Amino acid sequence: MSFLRKHSFKIAVLALCAAMGIYLLYMYGPKKAEPLPLLQAAPAFEMNDIDGKPVSLESTNGKVRIVYFYFANCPDVCPPTTFMLGEAQDILREQGTLGDKVELISITFDPERDTPDAIRQFAERTSVDTDGWHFLRGEEEATIQLARDFEVGVIKVEKENTFAHFNVITLVDQNGQIREWINGNDEELTPEYIVQQINKLL
């Protein structure tokens, strides 16, 4: 009893320090990643890749998918966003999930000009490869509607033969559910963030 009275102040300080440590660990320590919400079912599609092979939402089920709508003649957002996705592709390859667990799918709005050769040249310009990455082509009107069904706004500007569109990266889980729309125009967006969000689904 005399020991407790003699050292009561020290004990109180130690208890306070322990409580503060627990609080700081709770507030700022490592946390379990919050799961991504279920937003909506991804629209079904089937198109050919640049090698003429059919690829569909169903055929890629069981993998996390990054879906991106673009066109190769895009004068602004598509090339840098595709380049960033290529950097994410490199990280996925390094961590061993590219292809087996994660695939990228890019779908062109402009199949008339985006021939397989034109798409290969676009991929080369943006420093990406087709390892674990499907570049798909379909009918223009159907693709525009598909993009809208993915909540990616797009309008064809007939006079200039171009497309105005939202720059959105869509994360689709293994079961075909959309889990996140990522703003490709966000100046703070990094390939590491994209991979971080993908890893929440693995």
Rank of each mutant, 00 (worst) to 15 (best):
R5N: 14
T130R: 13
A164M: 14
S127Y: 14
I144D: 01
N183H: 00
K10C: 02
R120H: 13
K63I: 08
V152H: 00
P75G: 13
L39Y: 04
D76I: 10
V67P: 01
A12H: 04
G138A: 05
D51R: 13
E192F: 07
K53I: 03
R93S: 14
L201W: 06
D90F: 06
E140G: 04
D131E: 15
A72Y: 02
Y193D: 03
A123E: 11
E94T: 12
E103I: 13
F3H: 08
C74E: 09
N73A: 12
P54W: 07
L104S: 13
G99K: 09
R137C: 03
A147H: 05
F166P: 07
T126R: 10
Q196P: 01
L92E: 08
E46M: 05
N161V: 09
S127L: 11
E87M: 14
D51Q: 15
L189Y: 00
E139P: 02
E34G: 01
G184Y: 02
F71K: 09
N185P: 04
F3C: 01
K6G: 02
P43I: 07
V152W: 01
T115K: 03
N185W: 00
I91Q: 06
I169P: 00
A12D: 00
V152D: 00
G62I: 11
Q177F: 08
D186P: 00
D100R: 08
V168C: 02
L25A: 10
M47W: 01
A147E: 01
T60Y: 10
I22W: 15
E87L: 12
E188Q: 15
Q95T: 15
I155D: 05
